[in-house]
Simulated assay, not measured.
Amino acid sequence: MTLAAGRGLWCCHAMTKDAQTPTFTTPQGREIAYHLTQGTGPTVVFLGGFKSDMGGTKAVYLEDWARAQGRAYLRFDYSGHGESGGAFTDGAIGDWFEDACAALTLTDGPLVLVGSSMGGWISLQVARAMPERIAGMVTIAAAPDFTEDSMWGGFSDAQKAELMAGQVALPSEYGEPYIITRRLIEEGRNRLVLRDPLPLPFPVRFLQGTADADVDMSVALRLLDHAQGPDMRLTLVDGADHRFSDDTCLKLITDAVTDVLQTATDKG
């Protein structure tokens, strides 16, 4: 185990048991797995969704694209997700925001954040916390404040009572049920971004499918209306679902990232 060089001097680096995926330990003691591709900046960073991982289609596609472009790129798993340590049910939005902030210390210079679903919410929190490092942002079916507006706001009285007793299970199209904990809901109320001013002083491209059954199109419209920035655009893709991972959607993602990088470079 070696001490990280550069920005993240407090991160202890090691290799996972398969000797392929590097990890580091956050200041809070959580082990985070990641893949960092060296290249020119700004570094593109993929922030995944709720219960997703860095081995997903979009994250890997972007890595392949970044390699072909000679672009620096980072993907990682939040604690309790993918190859990172910890139990999913122990985590909350603030923990995963802290994980993201810790992962960003592995990079230098400006960043373009690509946030998918919950990763869009976390990207917005990161931009609020460290605006000086953000050169641009692309979100894919961003789900800001979903623990409050979608989960808690959509629960029946019985589900709310069950949750307040500890946790509630929600069905999922992606496999086993989601276990939603009381801490996830209550801690999420400290992380909301749609209740206060949300300045985004850099190029932003919001991508949203019209057939998304998990994040309604109205969320994208609300985010566009609420955020404040000089260069924000929303692209609605007819018939695209929450995965946003077919060939057409994947090209739209890299086109948006390219646009943001070019715009940021021209302004710089």
Rank of each mutant, 00 (worst) to 15 (best):
V204K: 04
K251Q: 14
A72F: 01
L62K: 08
E98H: 12
D238T: 15
Q208E: 06
G209Q: 02
V45Y: 04
P42L: 07
Y174E: 07
A102F: 09
L113V: 11
T2N: 12
V45L: 06
E187S: 14
G115H: 00
S52M: 10
D149P: 00
A165F: 00
D108E: 15
M118I: 05
K58W: 00
L106C: 11
S84T: 05
G39Q: 10
A158L: 09
E187L: 13
D231C: 13
T37W: 04
G56Y: 07
A102I: 09
P197W: 00
T40Y: 03
D90R: 10
T2M: 10
D266Y: 07
T107P: 07
G86T: 06
S117K: 00
D266V: 15
S150A: 12
A103S: 15
T16N: 14
G166S: 09
C101Y: 01
A127S: 14
V193P: 03
F24D: 06
E83H: 13
M118R: 03
I134Q: 00
S116N: 08
G91A: 14
T43D: 13
F206W: 09
C249A: 12
P203C: 09
A59H: 03
P199K: 07
S245T: 10
D53W: 12
K58N: 02
E173V: 10
D145K: 07
T40M: 09
L252V: 03
V237M: 05
G153D: 03
L221C: 10
L3T: 15
F146D: 00
E132Q: 15
G94P: 05
F244N: 04
D53P: 02
H242A: 08
F24P: 12
P171A: 07
G188A: 13
P171H: 07
M130A: 11
S123M: 01
C11I: 06
R243C: 02
V45C: 03
G120H: 00
G154T: 03
G153Y: 06
M1D: 13
H226C: 08
R233K: 14
D241P: 09
A256C: 10
T21I: 15
G109E: 04
G41L: 09
T263L: 10
A68C: 08
A142I: 01
W96P: 04
T25H: 11
P197M: 02
G115W: 00
G239V: 11
L252W: 03
K17W: 06
M151H: 08
L250H: 05
W152M: 12
A100P: 02
T258M: 04
T57E: 09
V260T: 08
T105W: 07
D246R: 14
L252E: 07
D157H: 08
L224S: 05
D231P: 10
E31F: 03
L224R: 13
R183E: 13
D77K: 08
C249G: 01
A14V: 08
A129M: 01
L124D: 02
T16K: 09
T263N: 06
G153H: 07
E132I: 02
R205L: 09
Y61Q: 07
I179N: 02
A14N: 13
G94N: 06
A264L: 03
G239S: 12
P110A: 12
I122D: 01
I185C: 12
H81A: 15
R133L: 10
K58F: 01
G120N: 00
M15L: 15
V45W: 04
T258Q: 13
Y61E: 06
V44W: 05
V60H: 01
G56R: 12
L261T: 08
T16C: 09
L3I: 15
D247V: 11
S79P: 05
